[in-house]
Design a protein around this nucleic acid. Structure first.
Length: 269
DNA sequence: AGCTGAAGAAAGGTTTTGCG
DNA sequence: CGCAAAACCTTTCTTCAGCT
């Protein structure tokens, strides 16, 4: 700025008001640009999204038909698979999934296109809840509706229709004791899945600073610092990436999807 | 930048189930 | 049937995300 006015003077644009006029305009432009200066980069945040090999293996481990599935019964397998997919695809918080109702997915017709679309209601399920730790939505604004793919709808319907254990509670996720699944049990499920990963996948996590992950059935004897188990929150971070990709892929569903997205609740990475 | 509620870790317990 | 393992849960305490 200083430089520019000096140059103008030097070039002999010495009509004072001419220089002043230019200076005023430049000042204004400078002010404008200062507003849109790029934000300072934050100190590099550790990567929380999971490596691709780990995500691929988790699909295989949770797949109810897979040889690698460590869970015993078909009921628990399909329940855990749906739980995993909800965390990975929708990026739900741990507790949010446990609040879902067995009728959380709703459909409606779009009067303009005449097509059916479906979404899932993330909200607080009213009624008695016997759990020691009550899951809760973090804020009122956490109540939202998320668009769901036909694949997810099929998975949901299959589980609810064929495998969900009947219970007097309306929750989607029910334990073998016929009560809503406890928060800790979700961790237990992911612990089992984590120990079922191949050595290669475990190595990929250790490269990222995780502690050594024990083999199935064994406790962890390793004293190294770091995370030992994949958590729903890790999937939430991974989900943000996947979600963007799916929206781009979904083409003409895009507007509908965005309409259902609560922009105030965009996932931050 | 501070705060609040959710997530996570750890330890340890009970109930249920698959399978020999 | 019997038993070991899986499934599930409580309790306490610490850490962290993300809202205001």
């Amino acid at each position: 700025m200083r430089f520019v006015t000096d140059v103008l003077r030097h070039l002999g644009v010495d009509e004072a008001d001419e220089v002043q006029r230019l200076e005023a305009r430049l000042t204004r432009i400078e002010a404008l640009y200062s507003q849109i200066a790029p934000k300072k980069k934050k100190a590099a945040a550790p990567i929380r999204a999971l490596p691709a090999i780990v995500v691929e293996e988790l699909y295989e481990i949770f797949d109810p038909l897979s040889q690698r599935n460590p869970f015993k019964t078909v009921q628990i397998r399909s329940r855990n698979y749906l739980l995993f997919i909800l965390y990975l695809h929708l990026g739900l918080r741990r507790g949010e999934a446990l609040l879902l109702s067995a009728s959380a997915i709703r459909s409606d017709y779009d009067l303009i296109t005449g097509r059916e679309y479906r979404w899932i209601n993330v909200t607080t399920l009213e009624g008695e809840d016997p759990r020691y730790l009550q899951p809760a939505l973090k804020t009122e604004q956490s109540q939202r509706q998320l668009p769901v793919t036909p694949e997810l709808v099929a998975l949901f319907d299959n589980y609810v229709g064929n495998y969900r254990i009947h219970s007097k509670y309306g929750h989607l996720f029910i334990s073998q004791k016929k009560t809503p699944l406890a928060l800790q049990t979700v961790n237990d499920i992911f612990n089992v899945a984590t120990t079922s990963l191949s050595p290669a996948a475990k190595a990929a996590l250790e490269v990222r600073g995780w502690a050594k992950i024990p083999a199935r059935g064994k406790g962890s004897q390793d004293e190294r610092e770091g995370k030992r188990w994949i958590s729903p929150h890790d999937l939430r971070h991974t989900a943000a990436v996947l979600r963007l990709k799916r929206f781009v892929d979904s083409g003409d569903e895009m507007e509908k999807a965005i309409g259902k997205l609560d922009t105030r609740n965009n996932l931050s990475l």
